[in-house]
Design a protein around this nucleic acid. Structure first.
Lengths: 244, 244
DNA sequence: ACACGTGCTTGATTTAAATCAATGCCCGGT
DNA sequence: ACCGGGCATTGATTTAAATCAAGCACGTGT
């Protein structure tokens, strides 16, 4: 709906704002709430950072010194139990925020799935700036409310859905999101591996794999390869996802 | 830490503000961010509502016309799947907010556990008022970030903890919260039934019951009766909860 | 082109928790 | 004081998914 490029003036007066003019995710990110003038203030505290595939952006328990906005690549958010069991809390796509949910410390770790670029904001300075940029605060509140609703949906998935329903829900959600972002082909790219999917869905890699196979055998999906799913029966997938 | 009563002037100039002066949860609720003058503005759009035990305050899917602040009693938030499977998203204690997380509609239902009193704010008017009361918007953002962190902790519980760890985590959390609110006895009151606990922990009533029995037999807790737990070994309980 | 390694799939077995089925206990009503 | 109903506990059985254990396929580097 808002995936198309912004009109960008070729001549830029303020150097730092240039950073944002070229931004691929400006239309979807938190920044979308701001006009050019406000964006310039935000840009004054930002640092662009890059991470290699697999790199840790921040660690569960670290002092939450920064808030991030993902501009390119994918990130997984994970919590780990003493004995090594891991739960993936969410996958972040370009335009998404990292480090919003804290309790005095980051409550989960953030790791790059493939190479990643992000905008890094010193937390305190961003929070201060919020007082001067009410639209940004409103936008962050909206984002937090949305993420909360997503988290609650995931609780339903983890607490009450079967592995089949979990995988179908996962694919259905990614598909819906892709459609919302203007995609027309009925396919889903999976930037993460099977282990990440299993740790996100509260199951095992074997069960995820078997479930993909089952969905394929039942004619609901086709696996172009392990990381590219073609949806053959969207309605069927949705019905499984909703437990019908 | 802030459970003690406010100093209340016996003579009140503004009638509606009186509503808040007597409020039991004023110190912990969202309102705690406001001075008397601001509180008065908030009070101008509030309605006090009471619900009987078991009553539905709002339903999953309803137009989210109101935001609530619980002043007395307990509420459960639940999502239900087509076939009747239910997941409890959270329990709300006095001072907590209802209806913050939405996606165009309430994403879960809210039901009274026992008789309940709450402050009801028309959503749109509250959101408008937020623009004039920046401290309240900041407070709501904080609350949303906290709830998000809690939701992520619950995902870890649902996705990766054993039933024993889930029950221990549940008790441990309630106990920690009670301590934070100034309680000194090592006991927990459970306003909800076993079915609610099971639906919150993603397990069954039988498993919850067996787990309580096991914790009792292992000397970690004592059951004064089904709804009152005495903690005998707080450290042991925490270790189980954390999966150590 | 080949060998290696990583990540995915498939198969066999085990196990923990769900389900099915009584039984027990407490509280409220008569 | 007794009876009835709802909720909690306990026990027996089933079942789905985890675990254990090979294979397979693709991509990388030599």
């Amino acid at each position: 709906m808002q995936g198309s490029a912004q009109t960008i003036s070729p001549l830029r007066i303020v150097p730092r704002a240039g950073l944002c003019d070229a931004c691929q995710v400006r239309g979807v990110a938190a920044c979308s709430a701001l006009d050019n003038n406000e964006l310039q203030r935000l840009a004054s505290i930002v640092t662009e950072k890059k991470y290699d595939s697999g790199a840790t952006i921040f660690e569960q328990g670290d002092e939450p010194a920064y808030i991030f906005n993902l501009t390119s690549g994918h990130v997984r958010l994970a919590k780990t139990l003493a004995n090594g069991r891991r739960q993936i809390i969410g996958f972040v796509y370009p335009g998404g925020m990292l480090g919003l949910a804290t309790h005095g410390a980051y409550v989960c770790s953030a790791e790059a799935i493939g190479p990643v670029k992000l905008c890094r904001f010193p937390r305190e300075r961003l929070l201060d700036l919020l007082e001067e940029l009410p639209p940004l605060k409103t936008r962050l509140l909206d984002i937090a409310a949305d993420e909360l609703a997503d988290a609650q949906e995931q609780m339903l998935l983890l607490g009450r859905k079967t592995p089949l329903e979990r995988v179908a829900s996962f694919l259905w959600r990614l598909y819906q999101e892709a459609v919302r972002c203007g995609q027309t082909e009925p396919s889903i790219d999976l930037p993460m591996g099977r282990t990440d999917i299993a740790d996100y869905l509260g199951t095992t890699i074997e069960t995820v794999s078997r479930t993909f196979t089952r969905l394929r055998n039942d004619g609901l999906i086709r696996l172009e390869h392990a990381n590219k799913v073609i949806i053959l029966d969207a309605q069927g997938l949705e019905e499984i996802a909703e437990g019908l």
